[in-house]
Simulated scan of single mutants.
Amino acid sequence: MARATIVSSGDLWQEIRTEAQRAVAADPVFGAALSDAVLAHHDLAAALSDLIGRRLGGNAVARAQFAKLCSDAFRDQPELVEAASHDLQAIAIRDPALTGLLSPLLHFKGYVALEAWRVSSWLWRHDHIDLALLFQNEASNVLQVSIHPAAGIGSSVFLDHATGIVIGANVVVGDDVTILQNVSIGRQGGLPNRSPSIGRGVFIGAGATILGDIRVGDFAKIGANSVVTSDVPAGCTAVGHPARLTNCPEPAPAA
């Protein structure tokens, strides 16, 4: 699904509602579920709160509690909703198989896990430590994605396939990053502040492991099943175990 520009969460929500209304008209059976998940809500924040509650909560009480915490976070920090909007649009831009927005919104567990992490991070920063860790635990159990609330993640991030992803405390992930399944990013040797920093536009292949106090530069690529324990310069590709650098940009000629 090609998108030319990134739009606001309000404009995106109107696109989603229009798509849902067409789907309801085409398939009344599927339409009943769409009405509950999309058309019953007045904006993206409300729909996301309900969606996260449904996915993480094991019963009606838990679903309502998770949804309430999400609503509180989105109301207190509207930037979280804009980041969620950008995440959804990033999926539409980068996944050539998509033909609409409903499928990633309702069915891509990586998207739900990422937006649940945004709420857990908000809770962590407001000293609700136990609740933040509860979000992490439930997302890990239900969605097979574990992102520590003390990590830092930008916007327009795409967790593709999103099974077995682990992102540890103090890891920093920049904007426009794509992470495939079974990726681990975390500290090395038990040192608390020795976690990787991932630059803008980085692509991390399936099964990759990135460890330690290192920097992966902007628009670098990490090959599938690579083990990275040292810096990767911007624009380079790291492959293998241990990772070696290839396809690095040519240095600029001397003036």
Rank of each mutant, 00 (worst) to 15 (best):
A162V: 12
E115I: 05
L131E: 06
I93V: 15
A243V: 11
P149F: 08
A67Y: 08
L39A: 01
I210Y: 01
G205C: 03
L211V: 00
I222K: 07
V29F: 05
V166M: 00
E115K: 02
H107N: 13
S120I: 04
E19N: 14
R118E: 13
A20E: 03
A4I: 13
F30R: 14
P149W: 01
L133H: 14
F74D: 08
N182E: 06
L44N: 13
P242V: 15
I185L: 01
A26Y: 10
G100E: 12
D231S: 06
H161L: 01
P104K: 11
R94I: 01
F108Y: 10
D130N: 12
A97C: 08
N170K: 14
D50C: 03
L191Y: 08
G201Y: 07
L134K: 13
I198L: 10
I16E: 10
Q14C: 10
S71F: 02
G186F: 05
A113T: 07
P28R: 06
R17T: 07
V157F: 06
V157T: 03
I198E: 13
L101P: 08
L101C: 00
N193L: 11
L211P: 10
A116K: 04
F219I: 07
V24M: 05
D176N: 15
A206R: 00
V227Q: 05
A220D: 08
R215E: 09
V38C: 13
S120E: 09
A252N: 01
